[in-house]
Amino acid sequence: MTGSHPALTAHFPRWTVKGTAHHRTTCACCGHENLEHTVALAPLDLLGDASGPAVHFGPRCAAAVLHRPVAAVALAACHADMRAERKDAWARKIISLYGPMEFGTDQEMEAAWNRSGNASSSSWQAREFVTKFLADARAQLTDTTLRPTRPHSITDFQPFLVVLDTSNLRHHWCGVVPRENTEGFHTSARRDWTGMVSVTVAALDETSAVHVAFGRRGIAQYNAERGWF
């Protein structure tokens, strides 16, 4: 390792492994190019908090900086990747659930928040929570430390058909609604899922679509309970 990256001379006592970056193929330490991937490292201050932007080192340079075997760094990066994917999944759900409500009325905001598994809140509290959650979700999906920017706005939504049982307690199937032969798709779904409730929603992915489908029915129930129409 012959690197002279500024982070190496800043006397940071520790680093944390942020994950694997396949879109960054040049080591910021030694300058080696066309690597299969790099390892994203963030410097920690004396209190153990992240104190600067992540840098991308090749696996060997990352292992040298961390004073750990390459295999151990690879394992740490793998675990970090899984945590990052869970955060991405959370962000997609938040944007799918609340993105369309961002500029809604106070009643719409309160109903959307309170019927999505959250603690009961007033309309102004709900708007405050949603605004913060949406900002955090967008920041997560636009963070390019580990991967390029991911879809993160309502313009990126796709249509999904979600099939629920009549009790609305679980879903049986979810799939993207095709842009061609949409009518035939819905006809086939009705035939295959006779007796079930089919809901068409827009979301960033299938998992988020299921949350949106349950949330939509919950909002309708919440509004009915309060006489809001």
Rank of each mutant, 00 (worst) to 15 (best):
G52K: 02
N114L: 06
A220F: 04
V55I: 15
D45Y: 04
S198W: 08
V163H: 09
S4C: 10
A77G: 01
I154N: 01
C174R: 10
R83V: 03
N181T: 08
S208E: 11
T144N: 06
S51A: 12
V199L: 14
P148Y: 06
H67P: 01
N181Y: 10
A202L: 15
A224H: 02
A62K: 07
G104T: 14
M196A: 13
I154F: 02
L134N: 10
G104R: 15
L75T: 13
A89I: 08
E206I: 06
V55L: 12
L141G: 04
A28T: 00
L41M: 02
D88A: 10
R60H: 14
P178Q: 14
V163R: 09
E183I: 13
I219F: 00
P148V: 09
T166Y: 04
Q125M: 05
K87I: 02
R127H: 05
I154W: 02
I154P: 01
M1P: 00
S153A: 09
E85I: 07
V73T: 08
N168C: 05
L41P: 00
D136Y: 14
I219L: 01
R216D: 03
H171R: 05
N34E: 10
F214S: 01
N168Y: 07
D136C: 12
T182H: 12
R24W: 02
N168R: 09
L169F: 06
P53Y: 07
R68N: 07
P6I: 07
F160S: 11
M1L: 01
P53N: 12
A64T: 11
L75W: 06
V212K: 00
A91F: 04
T105Q: 14
R138V: 12
H67D: 11
N118P: 06
F12A: 00
A135P: 05
F185D: 11
K93A: 12
N223H: 05
S167W: 02
L97S: 08
C30A: 03
